[in-house]
Computed example of a mutant assay.
Amino acid sequence: MSRSVFITGGNRGIGLAIAEAMAANGDRVAVTYRSGEPPAGVLGVKCDITDPEQVEAAFRQIEEAHGPVEVLVANAGITRDTLLMRMSEDDFSDVIGTNLTAAYRLAKRATRGMLRARKGRMIFIGSTVGLRGEAGQANYAAAKAGLVGFSRSIARELGSRGITANVVTPGLTETDMTAVLPQEIKDSMIKQIPAGRAAQSEEIAAAVRFLASDEASYITGAVIPVDGGAGMGH
């Protein structure tokens, strides 16, 4: 059956691939974006997820168009990479605010409809960096690691109501963000990946689509790595 799916940051990269995969599945898909244009065939909602009022307005718009959100994919995120000694208060708080605090805000609001329906899927896009750490990304790693504890707490709170919460942790993925990296840096990163290559956004989307499906109804509190083996053991 067609479901109401809400994806943050769904107009490019991994978020866009997830939106396209869910729409191809027949779902009613809404995505947030801050700049550019939303993809065709989905409901685009301009929203800054760090602003509680804009998040509330986004949910109301989606609920009016598609009904209560049944699948939430918290994908939007930012980086402010720098070494710890050079990291400003804003570098740290902005990344935590967008990547972790906003996920709390979205999940809390989505819970209303999911509890009434006694079913729901929450999927948080984490990162291998949140499991193994990375020099120059202490803020990003902290935020992504936080998603694991957050989702597992949701799984324990809401599991009996038919609501699942899981984290997908991509590794190096071919996106606009990674396209600007110098080739020598990408080559160095790929050498650390057992699969010997970066992921495609569609491969991340496939894992999300599965976790959102009925087949994954007994999977909750899980961390699903889609990283070519880069984070194994973590």
Rank of each mutant, 00 (worst) to 15 (best):
residue 46 K to T: 02
residue 9 G to W: 00
residue 166 N to Q: 00
residue 187 D to V: 09
residue 206 A to N: 11
residue 215 E to L: 13
residue 193 I to P: 06
residue 176 D to E: 15
residue 209 R to L: 15
residue 137 Q to H: 11
residue 30 A to S: 14
residue 62 I to C: 01
residue 190 I to D: 04
residue 85 M to P: 02
residue 44 G to H: 03
residue 105 R to N: 13
residue 147 L to V: 04
residue 39 P to E: 00
residue 81 D to S: 12
residue 30 A to V: 05
residue 48 D to N: 14
residue 26 G to H: 12
residue 80 R to I: 09
residue 107 A to K: 03
residue 175 T to F: 06
residue 133 G to V: 10
residue 131 L to W: 00
residue 153 S to Q: 13
residue 24 A to F: 04
residue 225 P to R: 12
residue 191 K to F: 07
residue 141 A to E: 03
residue 25 N to M: 14
residue 159 G to H: 06
residue 60 R to C: 05
residue 206 A to R: 13
residue 220 T to Q: 02
residue 201 S to R: 04
residue 11 N to V: 04
residue 21 A to F: 04
residue 170 P to I: 01
residue 148 V to Q: 04
residue 14 I to H: 01
residue 158 L to E: 07
residue 39 P to T: 09
residue 18 I to E: 00
residue 117 A to W: 06
residue 63 E to W: 09
residue 138 A to N: 03
residue 56 E to N: 10
residue 180 V to L: 11
residue 150 F to W: 10
residue 224 I to D: 06
residue 66 H to R: 02
residue 23 A to H: 10
residue 16 L to M: 09
residue 149 G to C: 10
residue 192 Q to H: 13
residue 227 D to V: 01
residue 185 I to F: 11
residue 142 A to S: 15
residue 163 I to L: 08
residue 42 V to F: 01
residue 116 R to C: 09
residue 104 Y to C: 02
residue 88 S to Y: 12
residue 191 K to Y: 07
residue 209 R to G: 07
residue 145 A to N: 13
residue 158 L to W: 10
residue 122 M to W: 00
residue 146 G to R: 12
residue 204 I to W: 01
residue 189 M to H: 10
residue 63 E to F: 08
residue 25 N to S: 15
residue 139 N to M: 08
residue 210 F to H: 04
residue 107 A to W: 05
residue 73 V to Y: 05
residue 40 A to F: 04
residue 200 Q to P: 01
residue 139 N to Y: 04
residue 198 A to D: 04
residue 229 G to P: 07
residue 99 N to S: 06
residue 54 Q to D: 10
residue 194 P to T: 11
